[in-house]
């Protein structure tokens, strides 16, 4: 019996070693060849989640690239920022979406939740360090193991296809054509409950925002926190007091461009938290002028 146990442990150890080796090989090959180069005219980049993804139409803003991605937390934005900044020395300004829902515990689900971890890990794991991996293992070991497998497979396909271009996978402006504000407000009338998760905040996500800021500052980039326009009735604003206190306590030295109260019509919203293309065009044209006037 001891022989069986010894042999099994040896076999599992060899397999784990081989898998670890293959993962290391994949990661080093991808990180060595990865291309994050943006057009040389791009001097301003924006990172964030779906709010900024739908609000900033970068075709209307000079030398600006919207790299926001739906459902992306600061945890996964950090490796993205590192690669973009390191491969694009022409970048001068980095804008980071900082809004009410990004401090909530929902962000923890965006980091290690079942739904998002596998796709994010497949994309960003070659650029994550052991500390980042530990955060995931610690909080959701089962899903981490599954995501590692998905990521192993996807990275292998990437290497097989010699596809090292990440520029089209980093995020972009998303054009929404819908307008559901009326129906949402109607539904809210009947069910206007307070979401408890708004009163609790994600320390992990906030920690990673600090890391992004530190990295940008150490690379002499101007950094701005940005809040995209949100509808007045958006329930995420419930945590405004906590949001303000965190911003003042943790990020007081970082300029905060708050467009929460930006004047828009009902028809400019896709829903209460996202602009549709009409709203995005209005806002982006205005932002372009505002930015050219040195944010005045």
């Amino acid at each position: 019996m001891k022989k069986l146990i010894k042999q099994s442990i040896l076999f599992i150890a060899i397999c784990l070693f081989v898998i670890k080796g293959l993962l290391f090989w994949e990661n080093s090959l991808i990180s060595k060849n990865a291309n994050f180069q943006l057009p040389s005219t791009t001097e301003n980049v924006l990172f964030g989640h779906s709010h900024s993804e739908c609000a900033f139409n970068d075709s209307l803003i000079t030398n600006f690239k919207n790299l926001s991605n739906s459902g992306e937390s600061y945890f996964y934005i950090l490796p993205k920022v590192k690669n973009i900044v390191s491969q694009n020395p022409q970048i001068k300004n980095v804008f980071i979406e900082f809004t009410n829902n990004q401090i909530t515990t929902n962000m923890d689900n965006w980091i290690w939740g079942e739904k998002l971890m596998s796709s994010r890990l497949a994309l960003h794991s070659p650029f994550m360090n052991s500390e980042d991996h530990f955060v995931l293992i610690k909080n959701n070991p089962t899903e981490y193991f599954n995501s590692l497998s998905v990521s192993f497979n996807k990275k292998f396909t990437r290497i097989w296809d010699a596809d090292y271009d990440f520029t089209d996978e980093m995020g972009a402006y998303k054009k929404l054509t819908i307008c559901k504000v009326d129906s949402i407000l109607e539904a809210k009338k009947n069910n206007d409950s307070i979401n408890q998760s708004y009163s609790q905040f994600s320390t992990t996500n906030i920690t990673y925002l600090k890391k992004i800021i530190e990295y940008c500052q150490s690379n002499n980039k101007n950094i701005f926190l940005v809040r995209s326009p949100q509808h007045k009735k958006y329930s995420g604003i419930q945590n405004e007091n906590i949001f303000d206190s965190i911003r003042e306590k943790e990020f007081a030295s970082i300029p905060f461009l708050d467009f929460n109260d930006f004047e828009l019509d009902k028809e400019d919203y896709a829903d209460l938290e996202h602009l549709n293309f009409k709203g995005a065009n209005k806002f982006s044209r205005w932002f372009n002028v505002y930015f050219k006037n040195d944010l005045h």
Binding site: F11, C15, V18, S149, S151, F152, N153
Partner: peptide
């Protein structure tokens, strides 16, 4: 023989996430 089992194990690992 172990290489055969090892290859099978690695292939299984690579597909585990599509459960």
């Amino acid at each position: 023989r172990w290489i055969l089992y090892g290859v099978l194990s690695v292939i299984i690992f690579s597909q585990l996430g599509n459960e």
